[in-house]
Every structure is written in structure tokens, then in C-alpha cells.
Design a protein around this nucleic acid. Sequence first.
DNA 1: TCGAACTCCGAATGATTGTTCGGTAAACTT
DNA 2: AAGTTTACCGAACAATCATTCGGAGTTCGA
Lengths: 193, 193
Amino acid sequence: MSVRPTRPALRERYDRRQQQVVYQAAKVFARRGYDQTTMQELAASMDLATGALYHYFSGKEELLTAICDQLMEPLLEQASELVDSGDDAEERLRSLVRLWVCHVVAHRDHMLVFQQERHLIESGERWRKVRASRKAFERLAAEALQRARPRGDGHLALLALLGMVNHTAQWYRPRGELSPEAIADGYVDLMLG
Amino acid sequence: MSVRPTRPALRERYDRRQQQVVYQAAKVFARRGYDQTTMQELAASMDLATGALYHYFSGKEELLTAICDQLMEPLLEQASELVDSGDDAEERLRSLVRLWVCHVVAHRDHMLVFQQERHLIESGERWRKVRASRKAFERLAAEALQRARPRGDGHLALLALLGMVNHTAQWYRPRGELSPEAIADGYVDLMLG
DNA sequence: TCGAACTCCGAATGATTGTTCGGTAAACTT
DNA sequence: AAGTTTACCGAACAATCATTCGGAGTTCGA
């Protein structure tokens, strides 16, 4: 069972290692799939013994929770800050979409796992918080979109925007010609005609 | 091992039952996930014994292949026919997107499974045909989009369109207020400004 | 430097589950 | 109606894999 050190001096190292495990797990889960990846494979990919993983997480599913939290929490936090900025509606939308796309491509593996395991996340008490974060973010996006684009079907437009941005994780490659910002601007241009 | 009847009179029943199994598998896989669904669960959901599934499919993975084939083949076929129609560029794009959205919502479960198991499909000899179908359809969509929208970043626009249409499977509900055609038109309107 | 806390090891285990297979009843053919 | 093929049963098997746990080496605090 995972136990965080009581000694303050050791917590930092523990937390750092824990984050590393999450990132590696996201990487491997994204490529091989969550269920197809065995704990022994995952451990081996970090040069760890199987049991070592349980020093940081109480089980496989908690690893998945950590991946989703690591994905949603910073996004929601940064997005909330943006909303308070004083730009005009279009600029606020553009800023939000840029932040969003940047976040998606910076956490591509997290996103792919998140999407792959959608059916798990959609139901079950365990995922309540993750669902709430996603919902909250979608609300922010809906608001920004509505203000920048008062006419037309706001509902469908939001769903379309969600689709294109989230889909970015599936094709974006760091060596590609388009920067995250350029991609975001392209999306916003589509939304605003 | 699955053995298709040699007697012609029995093939029809066999094929029909096989299709039923595929549809049920898509339904259950979409909700519970491919790996989380056991063959015994799947069989039970059809009031069948476990072994009966192997009368129609040689294994679990072949079931997944069948789901993907059942999804992609008719779509590609119908889309290919559309391309030859004589409408002008915008109408052809609209027809294609309508067909596409209708197909996605009519095969929602298939789509969800297809997306969930993307990591499996992306690699492995077994999935070559499925990947080829998807690629071919995307090429048709790219062409239709390019003709209807000669200016702007065609590449990004295609990716955006792919994203929003495929994402439709994740939120569409039959009882919703928007018809598949209305959704498709909304998407096309976004693409054409 | 000593003891406690920490990090990790890796074999064993217990549960799960895809697949097999011998058998039974029904359907079809002639 | 006898014989053959088809459809399905469901218990058993073999393999996989998440998790446990006793211990060994290391780091920290005093």
C-alpha cells in the first residue's frame, strides 16, 4: 500500500517520483491501452520491480485517476483565470482555445488515455471529480463561445469545438508544421466564420 | 472454431445471427469497454452460452474486426457513390457530411468501440484493411472539402471536420432536438463560414 | 553512528477469463 | 425415417495478471 513519507524532507522526492510514474503510465497506456498494459510491463518500462509501483499508488485504477486529475486540474485552473481577464469577447475565446490546444498537445498521452477510457469515467462514483472538472471546463468554453458568437446555434457550435480540439490529440505531432497557437487560431477562425 | 454452413439454405440464418452478435457486441463493448467485457457477459446478454459465440467467431478479436468492418465498409461504399453525383461542390460536401453524420449516429456503438480501441487498430497487420478504409474515406472527405472551400488551410479544416463529426457519436442521443441532417448542415455551415 | 523510516525487490498467490471440447437436441436432406 | 449437418450447451482448462508481502539495501534524523 502506498504511504507518503511523514518526514517533510522526503516528501518532495516522493512526490516527484510519483509524478514521473504518472507520466510514464500515461505514455505507455496511450500506446498499448490501459487494459493491455500489465503492471509488470509498466514497471519494467521504468526499470522498476512490479511491487515498487504499489509504493506510489494503491492500484492500477488509482494510476488512471491520477492521469485524469493531472490532465484536468491545471487546465481548469488556468482557464478560470483567463475568464477574469479584460479582453473583448473574441480575444477571450481565442485565448481560451489557445490555452486549451496547448494543454491538449502538451498532455497528448493523458488525453488519449482519457478518451480511450471514457466508458469507465462516464460512470462510477470514483470518477465524479473528473467528470465535474470536465463539465466545469465545458461551461467556461460555452460561455466564452456564446459571448464571441451571439448568433447561431451555440449548442452545436460548442460540441463542434469540443470535437475538433479534443481530436487534436490524435493527429498532432511535435514535428508538424502547425504550432499549437496556429491550430487554435484556425479553429477560432472557423467558429467565427 | 466458427464454421459457416455449407448448405446454402442455412447460410442466410447463420449470417443473420452473426450480424446480430456483432451488433450486440458493439453495444456491450461501447458501454463496458472491450477488455472489461468478458465473453461470458457478452454471451449472457444474448441469452447464449459462452461457447456459442465461438460458433460464429473464432475469437474475441475477430469480433472487434467485424465491428470495424461493419462500420467502415458501407460508409466507404456509399461515399464513393456520392462522389460521382453531379451536384456542385458545396452540395456534394453537404451530401457527404450528411451521409457521414447519419452513419455515425446510426452506428454509434460501433463508432465508440472504434474510437476506444484506436490504439489496437493503429498498429498490427490484422487491422490493415480497417486503416485503409478509414484512409480512403478521409481522402474522399478531403477532396470534397477542398473543392467546396478552395481557400484557407484545407489540411486543418479537414482535421477539424473529422474531429467534430466523429465526436458526434459521444453526445448524440436519438431523443435530442437535432436531427442528424441538421447537425451535418450545422457542421458544413461552420466549414464554409 | 545508531535506529527508524524509506525505497525498492521479485517470487508467490488468488482470482479472473478466453478458449476448448465432448455432448445433446434440433433442423435439414434424401 | 435414418443419417448428416447445424446450433448451442456449459463445465473444465490453461494462461494471464493485479496485488501481496517478507525482506534487503539505502537514506535520514539525532
